[in-house]
Design a protein around this nucleic acid. Structure first.
Lengths: 210, 210
DNA sequence: CCTATTTTCTAACTAAAATTAGATAGAAAT
DNA sequence: ATTTCTATCTAATTTTAGTTAGAAAATAGG
């Protein structure tokens, strides 16, 4: 059978079905409320057969989390890096927000499962996938740093705090978003407008209450 | 025993201890990962004794959620209503954000438990407490409506979308906040600045990329 | 075809956790 | 003191879900 062969093992397809089902159901119901039976049924096999592909429920969810973080991280990095070198901060942040939300809300159950359950998986699992998340956070931090270096971001801001506030704004959408109500692009536009310019009317006086 | 008597039942104190313990542990570990044994131990009694005070785990968590929503809702309503009648939108939103974050991060485990687990409790439980949450959401919606009526909020904005974006920004803090790192007031100030004015430096050109 | 390997299945097993039953101690009232 | 509720306990029950063991299909090569 030649494990290193270019031919896919037949089990690869099953493993993929299991992961897809797991991502979807974890996202819908949360970690603890999802049983291996639920996942097996959705993937079209028996509960015990899952153990041929994964050592445990924890290993399965770990893989889902890993994929979820990787998908959004790769997509956002690529989208930003593909911008022309002279693109300004406003453009770069706009693209980063749009791509992050697209991965989270439209593209993949893995990322929404990741965001929704990361705080509810066993600590050992969280610890294992943490470095990946930190690296993605560091990408955003660097994006903001470059924005402040350019003078685009107001000087007094705590960038670490801004980062978690912005990502919170985006990530919390996985709690309320329902497909079909509003295109993801429109949500991204409104979020970008708020983060960059705030919600006030441009004419309004600066700082002072009336 | 005279149930309507002004004298507190001795069980009221125990019930309160159980609720306090439940709120704290639900917040820390999530709904499904919290056992009645954990709660009982923290409250200083035996698992079975919980059933004297609550019919089931679901009824217990429902009460925690109800209290959590009520506490933050009442605090924010009161703080905003206590402002002078002529207070402008900027002031009202600043106070609403500060009070919401204070309830969520500093005051009470009930509210943080509520926010963290509402998406992970059994659907029947969520349905029962939903009206309370909707009412609180409606308060924010009305706050934003008044802001737009005043011309304070930019005209094109989708207020429903703005509302969930703002509350998402605030609520997601329950996922990353750790006491001691930064005073809650400083977090509120940064969040308010972002929501109202955005993160860009005031001098920067409007709209156009460089 | 025959055989070895991969994949999935059926059937236990185990452990944890929610819940129930019924006994007991404590407080308050007659 | 005796009786009556209130509150908590110990001990069992039940259910659910993760996991393991080992037998059977299915698949691929020779």
């Amino acid at each position: 059978m030649n494990e290193a062969s270019p031919v896919l093992r037949k089990s690869a397809a099953t493993r993929q079905r299991v992961l897809d089902a797991a991502a979807r159901i974890f996202r819908e119901r949360g970690y603890a409320a999802t049983t291996l039976g639920d996942i097996a049924e959705a993937a079209g096999l028996r509960t015990a057969s899952l153990y041929y592909h994964f050592e445990s429920k924890e290993e399965l969810v770990e893989e889902v989390l890993r994929i979820g973080t990787t998908l959004v991280s790769d997509a956002v990095r690529r989208a930003v890096e593909d911008l022309p070198a002279e693109a300004d901060f406003r453009t770069r942040l706009t693209v980063a927000i749009a791509t992050h939300l697209d991965a989270l809300l439209r593209l993949t159950d893995y990322t929404s499962a990741d965001i929704r359950i990361i705080g509810h998986v066993p600590p050992e699992v969280r610890a294992k996938v943490w470095p990946l998340r930190e690296a993605y956070g560091e990408f955003w931090q660097e994006l903001l740093r470059s924005g402040r270096a350019n003078g685009a971001i107001r000087a007094g801001a705590d960038l670490g705090l801004l980062r978690v506030l912005i990502l919170g704004t985006l990530n919390y959408a996985s709690e309320w978003y329902k497909p079909g109500l509003k295109p993801v692009g429109a949500i991204a536009a409104e979020a970008t407008a708020m983060v960059l310019d705030g919600i006030l009317a441009p004419s309004a006086m600066h700082r002072q209450p009336a």
